[in-house]
Amino acid sequence: MFESGSSVERIPILKMGSYLLVTIQVDMHDRLATSLQDDLTARIVETRARGVLIDISSLEVVDSFIGRMLGNIAAMARVLDAETVVVGMRPAVAITLVELGLSLPGVRTALNVDKGMELLRGSVERVAKVNSRGRRQARDA
């Protein structure tokens, strides 16, 4: 099923305007999850993306390793000035995550891709507004 030590296998990252879009469609083994984390941070810098949307609606299991990866991605993206939204978590996965003790602190979530995009656009525009106000104030001062 998986070629051991394979480095070819990657989760595709799509660019849509100023956002990056990731749909996780396979049951990820740990190395694949780690490489997604690395690839995403590289792509954020390369494309100057303002937001990352991660669709996990195909994931039947989110254990502590994948949960940690989602948290890491959100934290790294924030440091790189990009927002992250995780969308499409299945109800059974949500229930299990909370019982496992993982509430994904710092990870923003939305029910589906549409809501997630709305959330990203909203927060990016808000940030842009605040920044331009800041610049205006600096200029006027």
């Binding site: 254990d63 059974a92 019982e99």
Partner: peptide, 15 residues
């Protein structure tokens, strides 16, 4: 939900 809990617990212990 119970399948998911079992699979998740198994994943933690296997790791």
């Amino acid at each position: 939900v119970d399948q998911t809990k079992l699979v998740t617990a198994a994943s933690e212990l296997a790791r």
